[in-house]
Structures are given as C-alpha cells and as structure tokens.
Measured scan of single mutants.
Amino acid sequence: KLPPGWEKRMSRSSGRVYYFNHITNASQWERPSGNSSSG
C-alpha cells in the first residue's frame, strides 16, 4: 500500500506508470516508500 496522499497514475505521453501525491503535488517515477519514518 502506498503512503498517504500517493496514488498510481499513468503518463499519457510515455505510457509509463508514475506516482503522484495530491497532498504535496509531488510526482516521481520511483515507488514512494511507506515503511521508512520521515525525518
């Protein structure tokens, strides 16, 4: 399961899957890690 705020999306241009955070408006190709504590 993804960390809070993150969701899986697909890029229309490349067709690749990326991850988008609707809370911080951040996007990245790598899967966000939800196990590590923020610090």
Rank of each mutant, 00 (worst) to 15 (best):
E30G: 05
S11P: 02
E7T: 09
S37Y: 07
S14I: 06
N25M: 12
R16D: 07
G39N: 12
T24P: 00
Y19T: 00
H22V: 15
R12F: 05
S38E: 14
G34H: 12
K1G: 14
W6I: 00
N21K: 00
V17F: 10
R9K: 08
A26H: 14
S11E: 13
G39I: 12
N25D: 04
N25F: 09
P32R: 00
P3F: 02
L2M: 06
T24L: 05
N21H: 04
G39C: 13
G39D: 12
G39L: 12
K1R: 11
G34V: 13
W29D: 05
S13A: 11
W29N: 06
I23D: 09
K1T: 14
A26Y: 06
L2A: 02
E7W: 03
A26V: 15
F20W: 09
N25P: 00
R9I: 07
G34N: 12
S37H: 10
T24E: 03
P4D: 09
W6M: 00
I23K: 06
S13T: 13
E7R: 04
P32L: 02
Q28T: 05
N35K: 10
W6T: 00
F20H: 08
S33H: 08
P32M: 01
G34D: 13
F20P: 03
I23G: 04
G34L: 13
W29K: 06
S37R: 10
R16W: 04
T24W: 03
W29R: 07
S11T: 10
S27P: 03
N25W: 05
M10V: 15
S11M: 10
G5S: 03
Y18L: 02
S13G: 11
I23M: 08
R9Q: 03
P32V: 01
R16P: 03
Q28E: 03
S37C: 15
F20S: 01
G15D: 06
G5D: 05
S38C: 15
S11H: 15
V17S: 07
R31N: 09
V17W: 12
E30P: 04
S27V: 15
G5K: 01
T24F: 04
R31Y: 14
H22R: 11
N25E: 07
R16H: 08
K8A: 13
I23A: 07
V17G: 03
